[in-house]
Amino acid sequence: MNTLLKIACSVALTASLWGQIQPKVEGHESPADVARRAVEGERATASAPQNNPFESEQDIQKGDVLFQTHCSNCHGTFGAGGRGADLTTGLYRFGGSDAELYRTIRNGIPGSEMGPPQVNDDDLWRLAAFVKRLGLAPPEDAPGDAAEGKVVYLTAGCGSCHSINGQGGTLGPDLSDVGRRRGLAFLEESLLKPEADLPTNHRGTRLLTSAGETIAGIRLNEDDYSIQIRDTSGNPRSFLKHELKGIQRDDPSLMPAYGSLLSEKQIEDLTAYLATLKGMQ
């Protein structure tokens, strides 16, 4: 085949291929298709009830059995986590309302390891009921005086770092629903030994700059080359690691240990007040 003929054949072939290819390109799955798939799931859940219709003790019991079959491999027998997330904290990345828990279980979490379990709709609700139970603090009688505790909260400076229902600082964890999620012993320990349990998204971090300055804050993000913190004035800031002399983490916690700052009675009252915080309803 001479060169000219080769070119002609090649061009003709390519042109005909191009003609075939073109419609398929237009017909390929677009972002809208991807979204549609997600929406199929959403639509089905949009019409679902907002409150769990399967929340009796018997339903929760069944939910437990289902959980052991479908979820415990990753989330652990007690929901304490493992391969999957810890479900006993009462904090859920994709929402903790009945409808949100149902939706997360029904659809799985795209992009994560979690897929949907093979169960019917009623059992999805039972699973949601059990998962919700895992994250609830058990009912307890607080020995302290909650009204007095609120006064302590307002006067001891807690609100400069923590917020309740949108009021307060952003350095510490939001406490709006801490009483729903946490028992009395945990709450008291957090006041006396704040370093005992540090949420990973509120880790105290001190950066020593090459200029000799120490900047304290909470760690917002980090990779191999840089670290981002929210400083104690509430400003988000970013630093290149090679420009830092050192990074000190958690030790000590940015939150003072209140055992030496408040009386035992005040600690007891403050614990009782925190236990009343059940979230914005």
């Binding site: 007690f78 810890d86 006993t88 059990f130 005992a196």
Partner: peptide, 17 residues
């Protein structure tokens, strides 16, 4: 089963980054 439904850890394990 009963233990599972009433189980609460005093504190969950934390694995610092």
């Amino acid at each position: 089963a009963t233990r599972r439904r009433t189980f609460r850890r005093s504190r969950p394990p934390r694995f610092a980054p």
